[in-house]
Write a protein that binds this DNA or RNA. Structure first.
Lengths: 231, 231
DNA sequence: CCGATTCTTGACGGGTTCCTTATGCGCGGT
DNA sequence: ACCGCGCATAAGGAACCCGTCAAGAATCGG
């Protein structure tokens, strides 16, 4: 990388929010590129090659989701979505289109920065770590297809395993119901969200210290689930 | 090996992704050869003899699957497949054609490198370790095609031998039904999982101390089998 | 051509996994 | 307060997978 400071692209039409974002991010040491429209954003993404993109869904010219799609055609860079409250629908569409995470307007600086850090970390991290998930009282070895609980081996069924693998692939980020269902059960069951609840419970029972207060397998109401491992 | 750094062949038509791959791989210390077309790729594979090949399925001139077939005709080098999201069908075809693993576009650097390392590790294993399996009460010499049980020689049938060899090649990892069947019986019997149960029992009867509670030949329900040797 | 080994095929019981159905709970909207 | 929606949880039966036995083909060496 030419520069040590990560570059972040902001695609946001409202000047208020754009400037707020720039201020917050530069204060943290990030370099910032701003685009006020969707078209401009897709161009800036290719020319500036940022390390991360923040995309508002409510753009005047080009749908934010379309922006995400166009970036995803050629780059795996982390994409953070900013959406107005209540627009669950487009939030999900954005994630399905390839976004990595989202924040809901209005949001605090802390939340935003946390997500940015998480997204950047995940973009680089996996290269160093092996494919072993380390939870509080349990571990899951994705490559060897093995799991332990308090040191002892435990069994995961094929579906349970695929589910963990799918969540682990997007560690720390939201995975939509649709994504999980199509990857684990196939496209024909893309709407059987009920399956998820059942198997998520199984995973929590087997891997969480307290299945009732899950720390790792978090549910994102109306959207999907998220797998989190502490540092 | 002439060089310590493994050489990797990239067969990919889109310049963006090709350069992204080169950058990521060279940064990790790999040597890289690029081919922009399928035909070029098959040629470069023979001339450069890379340690691993990364093949995009969506090539303009020659189907990526055809590239895999042609390489597989003469080389067992690990082949990593890159495919666009949603093309489940060709992904499976690719694996059947002899590919070792796949990543879906768009993918992160970490994921890619992890798979590359895994693939290279699998490839190096059998050559570095000696080819003698030491189990609790039995040994299997894969090179000399011999086996002992409690010190005395025992006979393994050809199929039994191929089965052990296939499991030993992926020591400690699960080998899927499909993999075992295609490697031992050929692609036409890829679904006759029944064979596996029968021959697995034979192996356990001959090599396990207690065939009913197998310690080395473990079954992974719904997925495949795994060969484990204690340290 | 015959016998022995090996491979294939069929059948059955037991166990696990998976799907279905049903119920309760909490939250937000009307 | 009521209702609807999404989520968590429980439980039973169906489907599937595995291990096992046994007997019929195929193969091979003599």
């Amino acid at each position: 990388m030419a520069e040590a400071r990560p570059a972040i692209l902001i695609v946001e039409d409202e000047p208020e929010i754009r400037h707020f974002l720039r201020a917050s991010l530069t204060a943290e040491g990030y370099r910032v590129v701003e685009s006020a429209t969707g078209r401009r954003g897709t161009i800036d993404a290719t020319t500036h090659k940022p390390d991360l993109a923040i995309v508002d869904l409510g753009l005047p010219d080009l749908d934010g989701i379309e922006v995400i799609r166009r970036i995803r055609e050629w780059s795996p860079m982390p994409i953070l979505v900013v959406s107005a409250r209540g627009h669950e629908r487009s939030k999900i569409e954005a994630l399905d289109a390839g976004a990595d995470d989202y924040v809901t307007k209005p949001f605090g600086v802390g939340e935003l920065l946390a997500r940015v850090r998480a997204a950047l970390r995940h973009a680089v991290r996996p290269s160093e770590g092996n494919s072993v998930l380390r939870l509080e009282h349990a571990t899951v070895d994705l490559e060897r297809r093995r799991a332990t609980r308090d040191g002892a081996d435990i069994r995961l069924t094929p579906i349970e395993f695929r589910l963990v693998a799918c969540l682990a692939k997007h560690l720390g980020r939201v995975v939509t119901h649709r994504q999980l269902l199509t990857e684990v059960w196939g496209p024909t069951h893309a709407k059987d969200t009920h399956y998820l609840r059942i198997y998520m419970k199984q995973l929590r029972d087997k891997l969480e210290a307290d299945p009732v207060q899950p720390r790792h397998f978090q549910t994102e109401t109306g959207v999907g689930y998220r797998l989190v491992v502490e540092e």
